[in-house]
Design a protein around this nucleic acid. Structure first.
Lengths: 194, 194, 194, 194
DNA sequence: TTCTAATCGAGACGGTACGTCAAGTCTTGCC
DNA sequence: GGCAAGACTTGACGTACCGTCTCGATTAGAA
């Protein structure tokens, strides 16, 4: 029907203005009150321009936060796996507590009912970081610091699930999240050692 | 302003019809397409009747699933903490994979942007089960099956977070969730034992 | 179906409170914003009590103003027909400019779409006064002060129509209505005399 | 706040469909049962499209009848002022007895409680015709057929008030209105001549 | 360097649902 | 047994956005 628009002729100014307006409005009014209409108005842009380039407000918000994630979630490798993981998790917690986190929360909510957004979240946020994390864990396994009989992807899950659990369920405040203690606990397990 | 309506005079027929219609429509069309208007029509009820008793579609959907949670999430106590936890988690996974889970996903999404729904989810779903779980864990600690130096609430988090992580992020399929192996892993930790 | 309620057991207190609340609310908020609900609340009465005794808010408002019309619209007979008519019309204008007039305007509006209210307006307001007016005019005819070849009801029409015309159409302000001059003009006609 | 919409981009099709649906529904179901919702549905138009261009159902109905007034109310000038006025009044009576009249009655009712509608009725209906009528009367005065000492606007009032009086109060049937006799009577006055 | 076609802003459009108000009916206890 | 109280179904209100659709007015690339 409508042909794919050619990115070549895309207005860089509008692209920027749209993403900035999206993030700013999402933060200012809260994600649920974010509307395409308001974004268009704030960006000084027609609504069709937005619909031409993004399929939904979820996709738009996702792109706006991906730009702002920066290097906060990189995985360092100092050799000390506990310190490295705890440090990275601390960065993630800080991110989740920031404006970016607030918008991310909305994007995840959107993803619950929109498979395309869900896929985009996985592809642009969780999977890349999971991959990086697995690489770091694999090195720790090789160094004998972690058990070799557990797939790294399950380790990732075990380490990051509690952060997301608090982030999304709000059972415990994220602020009080003690990354180092959590990592130690996950690494040591709940069974008593003798 | 508007006085709290008196529950005594509430129409039982309408109450039932509304909750049933809510659940059925949420399942049939998906939570995001659920509207108060459609619920009212399907239940043979006026919209004001719904607004009189529930503040939002989130609250309504939450009540409709709470009715349907049943005993699936009770915590047994056979003395074998691993088997008990794994069994309960299996039940939770089955629940999350059912229609109730589909609606619950929508409710959690709603909760991301509506503090009242978030609070209601905690009060009626997560906290009661957390309490039950902690009681079970406390008994296991007393029996020497779990470490005594870790607050039970953190243990709960560690055990259930991965289920929610898959449920909400979809990183790994919930179907393939091996509850027993996960419990073992969480209990044993990721560090190699010697 | 519902049997005619027996006026004997009617609560005088409620009757009064309802009529008073009706008039007061109609004046305070304007007739279009007058609602049965508000009347019931203000009168400390259930809605069904109102519906039991009055068929519509128009009927209710009509009764409330009929109580308040008083003797302002009686037709005096001093022998001087011009003075008598001008005086009575002055009283009518004053009434129309009062709170009673404001409510009356609303009742007439209601009557445009509700034949029962229209009939009630005629029976309780216009016809009795028309009858009185005709009697006065008949005496003037007998006294040779008015033409004998014109039916009195047409004379009434000619005299009062301009008042209602201004009252309802607002073409000219009612305040500036010069009753005496109008009566003279109507009596003398528009054709030049020689 | 909301900027005036630009008439240039207005959809002619919708404009027509809305006015036609308004008139048709008003006639079919009666003015009080006329709803914006039903108009929108019948016109195949969204409600906001109606609210964008008209402030109220009264304004809408007024425009729909103004379109249909046609030349029925023009003031001829044959030199015979009695015949001219009687003819014009006959046309008005016919109009009031038609569908247009039925809707006009509703609009006037609305105007009783809505000053904007009242002003619009005056500006688009009564005043233009009053002006035309005055012009005709002024010529009659100049020709010595009418008294020169009475402002034409008062003459207009005296001539047309009885028509409106019957139209709105229903004291006498409009059908039986004898325009010629009424004009004669108004011109000759009620006092006996000698 | 001009032409021309895609992209742009603007915003009206048909819709859907919102949350609210009031209508008129009914049901339940109090007096 | 009439009455207050108020919950009920119904239906319309006026508003907010949705996503689609014209419109001219740029505007940038190909000719």
């Amino acid at each position: 029907m409508t042909p794919e628009p050619s990115p070549a002729r895309r207005s860089a100014r509008s692209h920027r203005a749209i993403l900035d307006a999206t993030f700013e409005l999402a933060v200012r009014n809260g994600y649920p009150k974010l509307t395409i209409e308001a974004i268009a108005a704030a960006a000084g842009v027609g609504k069709p321009t937005i619909y031409r380039w993004w399929p939904s407000k979820g996709a738009l918000a996702l792109e706006s936060i991906n730009e702002r994630m920066g290097t906060a979630t990189d995985f360092p490798d100092t050799g000390d796996v506990v310190a490295d993981l705890a440090g990275q998790i601390d960065n993630v917690v800080r991110l989740f507590n920031s404006d970016v986190g607030a918008v991310y929360r909305g994007v995840i909510a959107e993803a619950q009912g929109d498979p395309k957004v869900a896929a985009a979240v996985r592809e642009t946020i969780t999977e890349p970081r999971t991959r990086q994390c697995r690489a770091r864990l694999d090195r720790a396994v090789a160094a004998g610091q972690l058990r070799a009989d557990i797939p790294a992807r399950l380790m990732v899950e075990q380490l990051y699930a509690p952060v997301y659990y608090r982030f999304l369920l709000g059972t415990e405040p994220l602020d009080g999240f003690d990354a180092r203690a959590t990592v130690e606990r996950v690494l040591d397990g709940l069974r008593p050692r003798h």
